[in-house]
Design a protein around this nucleic acid. Structure first.
Length: 546
DNA sequence: TAGAAAAGCGCC
DNA sequence: AGGGCGCTTTTCTA
């Protein structure tokens, strides 16, 4: 496949290298050049998709595939199966220091990044390809790097398209729960009334309920013996002030996190445009550093409303991580339980466990490292029944406790956690209890890393394949006039689609999930059943429990 | 006084 | 003695 390397040159110019031959071109001419090359769909190789993609999308140009050098370098430099010496060379340290491109709301790029003018995409690409080729796990790493890069394209496209957002619906919801929008710095009426109730019922006239120390002192003066003010703690307390306090907390959170200020900042032209960071977390999951895309509460999802004549196709995977664990451990008994829509129920029907709740407790406990309580007991019990699956996470935990690196199925390595438990030179020697706690904590991290990270790889393959399928489904036109991804949340996608294509989109989403399963677990077929809804508002999507 | 840390909550 | 992340406010610290 043709690889075309794009590098930044001084003076708003771009160096284009293909097959060893280079030419340069004005930055302003890049969209037309890229559009002209898309017939043969080369792989565009660049430092950072978040830097090159937005101006192309703004010009109506969508690329089929790319290789994101920054993401791939970080992947390869942490991958245990890679000879890291092969990544050394000219400007290697610059590449290592390359952070994610700054968020760009307008397609103005490259400003103030002189260092970028030294980076040669073709040189770095050659190193990365050599490192992959030399690895005993070359095939898996190729898939991983391609999926990571495709994910970066999907992220840029989702930010470009945005989630259709009804400010009217959102504001009506806020007014109903909080009262009219208050002047800057003031609490909305219903929130203020709630605070008054708390003050009255605690007999604390001057109390600021946002202040934990003040609140804790007031609670204790009222005879409530608590050591923290968490909702879960307060719920166990029988006192008339608890209900309004919890209600205050909930309303205050809505007001400050997803209130009018959030709308002002994040919704423009009827679109909510969150900023994603592919592989933003150590496990390879995405994070989001703008708009709180990955944590906006169920409460406000009713404001996500499809355009007239369009719908949302919402799909999420049932029990992604337990299924991934079955696949990567090759545990056929657990894989059999995973045949069907409900893995936990499958375990009950196989006679492995008495109730669905027990199955869930045991599996989640194994993946998170529960050692006590009901969850801990179920882990011990189920380990006998599913020794391969439970053994895999157990071994990952032991590796972490011993300071070893673990890897996902496709080869992403856990971060070195440099010196986090080795005492630093000037720190006082920690006592054995502290060291032991720390060791176990690392073990819980590596235990979860292998499953969460492989789950993230499955999800990347899923959206990468889905992205291509959606493109083929559409008619001519830019991304946002065809069915397109608008939202991705670990194991859930939202596609914005013309109503007439809803059924076709739903089946593509399902087929993409099957493709992802085959890519990761060829030899062992694992089912990845989806809950799919076709809705006008995101809030209407059915979300059966996991 | 700016920035980090902590607490609490939201999502998976 | 249960993994990952971001966001907001308050509180602490350099």
């Amino acid at each position: 496949m043709t690889r075309v390397h794009l590098s930044r040159l001084p003076g708003d110019r771009v160096l284009v290298v293909e097959g060893g031959a280079g030419r340069d071109l004005a930055l302003a001419d890049l969209p037309a050049y890229v559009a002209g090359r898309e017939a043969d769909a080369p792989r565009w190789v660049w430092d950072d998709t978040a830097r090159w993609c937005p101006p192309l999308l703004a010009a109506g140009v969508r690329v089929a595939r790319c290789h994101d050098l920054r993401l791939s370098r970080r992947l390869l430099s942490r991958a245990p199966a890679v000879d890291h010496a092969l990544l050394e060379g000219e400007d290697a340290d610059l590449w290592d220091r390359l952070g994610p491109a700054a968020t760009v709301s307008e397609p103005v790029l490259f400003s103030g990044h002189d260092a970028l003018e030294h980076l040669r995409a073709d040189v770095e690409d050659a190193r990365q390809l050599a490192a992959i080729d030399a690895s005993p796990e070359a095939a898996r790493l190729r898939l991983l790097v391609a999926a990571e890069s495709a994910g970066a394209l999907a992220a840029a496209e989702m930010t470009h398209a945005g989630v259709p957002w009804s400010v009217d619906v959102h504001e009506a919801l806020l007014t109903e729960r909080l009262g009219p929008r208050p002047p800057r710095g003031a609490r909305p009426r219903l929130l203020a009334e709630c605070a008054d109730d708390v003050r009255r019922l605690l007999g604390a006239p001057g109390l600021n309920p946002d202040s934990q120390p003040e609140l804790l002192a007031a609670l204790r003066r009222a005879g409530i013996e608590v050591t923290d003010t968490r909702a879960s703690t307060l719920r166990a307390v029988d006192h008339p002030a608890v209900e309004p306090l919890l209600r205050y907390r909930s309303l205050a959170h809505l007001f400050s996190t997803n209130g009018w200020a959030w709308i002002d900042e994040w919704v423009h032209d009827g679109r909510f445009r969150p900023v994603y960071q592919p592989a933003g977390s150590a496990t390879g999951r995405w994070s989001s550093n703008g708009g709180g895309a990955l944590s906006f509460p169920v409460q406000v999802r009713s404001a996500a409303v499809a355009d007239e004549g369009w719908v949302f196709v919402v799909a999420d995977v049932a029990q992604l991580e337990p299924r991934v664990l079955a696949g990567m451990s090759g545990d056929r008994a657990l894989a059999r339980a995973a045949r069907g829509a409900d893995l936990y129920q499958g375990m009950v029907e196989a006679g492995a466990v008495a109730t669905r709740q027990h199955a869930k407790l045991g599996l989640l406990g194994a993946m998170y490292g529960a050692t006590s309580g009901e969850s801990g007991r179920m882990v011990a019990e189920l380990t006998r029944r599913y020794p391969q699956a439970f053994g895999l996470v157990e071994e990952a935990a032991r590796a972490g406790e011993q300071g070893r690196v673990v890897r996902t199925l496709l080869g992403r390595g856990s971060p070195p956690l440099g010196g986090s438990w080795d005492e630093s030179p000037d720190a006082p020697p920690a006592d054995l209890d502290v060291l032991d706690r720390r060791r176990r904590s690392v073990g819980r991290f590596t235990r979860n890393f292998v499953v969460q990270g492989t789950g993230a790889e499955w999800a990347l393959c899923w959206i990468a394949d889905l992205r291509n399928r959606l493109w083929r489904l559409g008619d001519e036109g830019p991304v946002e006039s065809r069915p397109h991804l608008v939202f991705f949340l670990h194991d859930e996608v939202v596609v914005h689609a013309p109503a007439g294509l809803a059924d076709a989109v739903a089946s593509e989403v399902t087929e993409a999930a099957t493709t992802a399963g085959r890519l990761l677990f060829r030899e062992l077929p694992i089912d990845f059943p989806l809950n799919v809804s076709v809705v006008r508002s995101y809030a209407e999507a059915g979300k059966p429990g996991t």
